[in-house]
Amino acid sequence: MTAPLLDIDDLHVTIPTDRGDLHALRGAGLRLESGKTLCLVGESGCGKSLTAMSLMGLLPRKARQSAGRFALMGTDYAGKAPKAWANLRGRDMAMIFQDPNQSLNPTMTVGVQMTEALRHFEKLSKAQAEDRAIAMLDRVGIADPRSRLGQYPHQFSGGQRQRLMIASALIGRPKLLIADEPTTALDVTIQAQILQVIAELQDELGLGLLLITHDLGVAAAIADDVAVMYAGRVIETGPVAQLFAVPAHPYTQGLMVAIPVPGRTRPGTPLPAISGRVPGLIGGVTGCAFRDRCALAGDGCASDPLPRHAFASGGFVECTRPSLSETRP
């Protein structure tokens, strides 16, 4: 069996604050095969964006990171100098953000921004690099790409800017694309277009895609596998069909029923909401972080380590409830 594209295990990130250490990631793990899409879902503060930041080496400077395994394409970088991992950035890994304005330089033309890295890494000539940029822009659906190369980011609309970001990220032909809420700021019709472009390009280039989203609809539409994060840990993961059909963790179940779905939820009736709120992560948490909000919590939930139940169809759930294996293959 070949090594997975991305294999992260036991990832910890701690951020010192005025009030003590914030344990933002508490042993998160991910596995992503080439050409597949893994959606990382969860609510704000669960650590999903921080996981992406950690992968891209963009953590706040004062943050401390450690990992049991931190591997890309079979090479484990866990114990190695951060520099070795940083070298992968922009070549083997690329990232797109929710707000394209964050990563587009408003004072440089689109063409210069897109070709810079190519000319640096692949030592292409200006003309060669521009040809690649034009092909890429055309591929993401930007009309008349040759003339738009000389324009500045503000001359593009919101949806076009996100296309631009995708083109810039993929022009270096990375193996792994990390997308952090790439469509959250967009209108629904544009969102569908952008997801379409991402999915097509992923197929063509054999990309591994790590997509971070709070929107279960996006995850259902595009994911092969889904990982649900809560309070800095992946609490459940599995193939998209199984996870949505038989969510095993009480938190995942709660999330699924809390959103109105036309045709499924009865309009005007109360939605089953998850009560309470996410625990503070300063000073750390022992046991299951969800137990205070969980109707099924019992004595075993307060102690570490939590039992992890693996499913035959792939994935696992981290929960003390014993009866789960019967409902999901």
Binding site: G141, A143, S157, G159, Q160, D187, V188, T189, I190, Q191, A192, Q193, L195, Q196, A199, D215, L216, G217, V218, A219, A220, A221, I222, A223, V240, A241, F244, A245, M256, I259, V261, P262
Partner: peptide, 25 residues
């Protein structure tokens, strides 16, 4: 129709909604 069609439901198995391409708003 376009709006309803573009709305993603949290149920796997639906294909991504087909949208007219290259049509900026």
């Amino acid at each position: 129709r376009m709006l309803v069609g573009a709305t993603l439901v949290p149920e796997p198995g639906h294909p991504l909604p087909a949208q007219p391409k290259g049509q900026p708003p």
